[in-house]
């Protein structure tokens, strides 16, 4: 798994002595430390866990969802970029597909930003973290993009995307407060919009249970068609909807990076423009889609 110039620590059972412990220190983040017993990086991502997940998940990706990409050349092969996509399915199936797909096709790791609700759930939170997910905090995104030149995936709709019910499918929600544009401006990286078709039908929400959600502190609690079809298994089993992903042209901003603040009108204009591009791409893709299951 090529990983830029970042050398992953080896998984040795005993600490490897080095002549000068300071020579191995990297400038940023102190990533490669001798004596480490695991390969969990500062963000919680473990390449070993990721490799295992890639092996287990690949059949889902290529056989179940039969994911197909177009415009992959729009994703930069090096340097930071903020990937922005529409968000759907009660348990979002788009994040793993995008992260797996880009790792598989481009060999670049993708860090996925998610609601910090994930972090509070035992086991799930830890797994999500090991697989490259992290809480959506502007500081995290900035450091990954500007200082470490990584690919970061974010869903600007937030939990409002996957929370929407089936009758609202492919209707993009508000893109937050445009925070993703501001981060990309600050970090001086392009935004790469991605339109995803298929996630909506993989686990459609029939209705929500807001009272349950408020009791357990979750952003939303859905009742899905999958639960009716598969019973309890439906909480985790997706329908085999055909996935099509279209990577749109990168958006670059002609503003100096690292400003304290950017003109809110400019930020919101860009946010709206990017939302429009994804929405239009979705309509375009849906116009040519003959079948939910076969694409």
């Amino acid at each position: 798994m090529p990983d830029g110039d970042d050398v992953r620590p080896s998984r040795a059972l005993v600490p490897i002595p080095t002549a000068d412990p300071h020579s191995a220190e990297s400038e940023e983040g102190g990533e490669h430390l001798p004596g480490r017993l695991s390969d969990v990086d500062e963000w919680g991502r473990s390449e070993r866990m990721r490799a295992l997940a890639r092996r287990l998940y690949d059949p889902v990706y290529s056989k179940w969802f039969r994911a197909e990409w177009e415009g992959l050349e729009n994703i930069p092969t090096e340097g930071g970029a903020l990937l922005v996509a529409n968000h759907a399915a009660a348990i979002p199936s788009d994040a793993p597909v995008i992260m797996h797909g880009i790792e598989k096709e481009l060999g670049r790791p993708v860090y996925g930003l998610a609601d910090n609700f994930f972090k509070r759930v035992p086991v799930v939170g830890t797994l999500w973290s090991r697989l490259g997910g992290l809480p959506a905090h502007p500081d995290n995104a900035y450091r990954l993009l500007a200082e470490q030149g990584q690919l970061v995936l974010v869903f600007p709709e937030g939990s409002k995307g996957p929370a929407k019910t089936f009758d609202e499918r492919y209707q993009l929600r508000r893109f937050g407060r445009g925070g993703f544009v501001e981060i990309a401006m600050q970090a001086g990286v392009p935004v790469v919009p991605i339109a995803v078709v298929g996630a909506e039908e993989s686990m459609p929400t029939l209705f929500r249970l807001p009272s349950v959600a408020s009791v357990i502190g979750a952003p939303y609690v859905p009742v899905t068609a999958n639960m009716l079809a598969f019973g309890p298994l439906g909480a985790v089993a997706y329908f085999p909807a055909k996935f099509r992903l279209r990577v749109l042209e990168p958006v670059t901003f002609n503003v100096p990076p690292d400003q304290e603040r950017y003109s809110k009108s400019r930020v919101m204009d860009w946010s709206e423009a990017i939302r429009d591009r994804i929405q239009n791409a979705l309509y375009d893709m849906l116009r040519s889609r003959e079948s939910v299951w076969f694409g």
């Binding site: 500062e42 910090n116 609700f117 992290l134 809480p135 905090h137 500081d139 995290n140 450091r143």
Partner: peptide
């Protein structure tokens, strides 16, 4: 807390 950034800077 769960809302924390991975790295706190002095002014966070």
């Amino acid at each position: 807390s769960s809302q924390d950034p991975v790295w706190f800077r002095e002014d966070t």
